[in-house]
Amino acid sequence: METQPYHERITDGKFRSAVDLLDAGDADGLKVYLTQNPELVYQRILFDEEGYFKNPGLLEFVAENPVRHDRLPENIVEVARVILEAGAKNNADQIDYTLGLVCSGRVPREFKVQIPLIDLLCSYGANPDGAMTAALAHGEFEAVESMIAKGAVIDLPAAAATGRTNFVAKLIPLSDSRQKHLALAFAAQHGHAAALKFLLDAGLDPSLYNPEGAHMFSTPLHQAIISGHENCVRLLVEAGARLDLKDTIYHGTALDWAMYFENTAIISYLRSQGAKPGDE
């Protein structure tokens, strides 16, 4: 049975009405409603599940991430400003978390409000550094460049994910193990072979499962395959990446993933290296 969208699972009638006004783009109506019910700006809804949207506040619904309607009203920036001015501007953690949702969601980008929402949230004090990993993991590079322009640090994961190869070479000896691990995952996922080679030459294990925040159910090899980056697949295999490791959700090997995504060149290469499906 299909799960209801999050807004349809809100049992608090007042909070649900506020979300409905938000979804309708009724900024004036929402402003009046929050004046009458100011507690809603500070309230959080607890959904009976784990995940990144298990306990959202009203502001977080402006990101449409997770997808609920697959659209956003044209004036969502104005709607977000109403919520911020009604009191959400006093909650730095919620502003930061909302920025992460906006930066990692496709709907804000597709409706051309991602950058305006980033601008708004940062003007209210959101920390662009805190949203970088989510944006990088989801390949939201317009958001990444916007946050870099706002002062976000180009660390090793950001450099590897965006193909800033010269930065990668300089930052490897200055970075900790988690940064290196993230960088390896992002370089493979986003197809930056030169950055990936620097990391592998520095001794990074090509068979490590990706860290939290970077599709941790899979390995760099899995992610290079899903993205179709044959050059990165070859680099990882040549560096000793194990071909028998299965992802922890679908339980597929590298060859299983290549077969599922019907990438004949990668299938042929993996078979030539002795790769087998997980059921053999």
Rank of each mutant, 00 (worst) to 15 (best):
K170V: 03
G130E: 13
N90A: 05
N127Y: 13
R164S: 00
I118F: 00
N91V: 12
G139M: 12
N91Q: 13
D93G: 06
L84V: 05
Q114W: 00
Q94F: 06
R81M: 05
E140Q: 14
P173T: 13
R109Q: 14
A159G: 09
L199E: 05
D176G: 10
N166R: 13
D129E: 09
A187S: 14
I148N: 09
A159M: 03
F111E: 00
A126K: 03
T219E: 09
G139C: 10
M147G: 01
Q114G: 01
F186C: 09
I95D: 05
D119S: 02
L101C: 02
L182Q: 14
S218Y: 14
K112D: 05
V113W: 06
A183Q: 02
V144A: 07
A86C: 06
G100H: 08
R164W: 04
A160L: 04
E212K: 14
G139R: 15
A161I: 02
L136G: 04
V168E: 10
I154F: 02
L184H: 09
G203E: 11
L156T: 08
C103E: 07
V102K: 00
S218T: 14
I172Y: 03
T162C: 08
G87D: 12
S177D: 13
E140F: 00
E110K: 12
A195F: 06
G191H: 11
P128W: 08
A80D: 04
L196A: 09
A185N: 10
A149I: 04
Q189W: 10
L156Q: 03
P173E: 10
A143R: 07
R106K: 12
A137K: 14
L171C: 00
P108C: 06
C122R: 00
P220F: 15
H190F: 07
M147A: 06
I95C: 05
P211S: 10
A131F: 03
F167G: 00
D96P: 09
D129H: 09
P157I: 12
G130N: 15
A187D: 08
T219S: 08
F217P: 00
T133Q: 15
A193T: 15
F111R: 00
Y124K: 07
L171I: 07
I83H: 01
A169D: 06
E78Y: 01
A86G: 03
N210R: 12
E145T: 06
E78A: 13
T133N: 14
I172W: 05
Q179E: 14
P108M: 03
G125W: 09
N210H: 15
V102E: 02
L204G: 07
F141M: 11
R178K: 15
V113E: 02
E110F: 09
G163S: 02
P128R: 01
L101Y: 09
E145Q: 09
S207M: 11
N210F: 03
I95R: 05
D155Y: 02
D96Y: 06
R164F: 04
N166F: 11
E140W: 02
D155G: 12
V144E: 03
K197D: 10
P220D: 08
N210S: 07
E212C: 11
G191C: 10
L182K: 11
K89E: 13
N166M: 02
L196S: 06
L221A: 01
S123C: 07
L120A: 02
P116G: 01
L171A: 04
S177K: 13
Q114K: 01
L221S: 04
H181W: 11
A202V: 04
E212L: 14
Q189M: 08
G125C: 08
L200E: 08
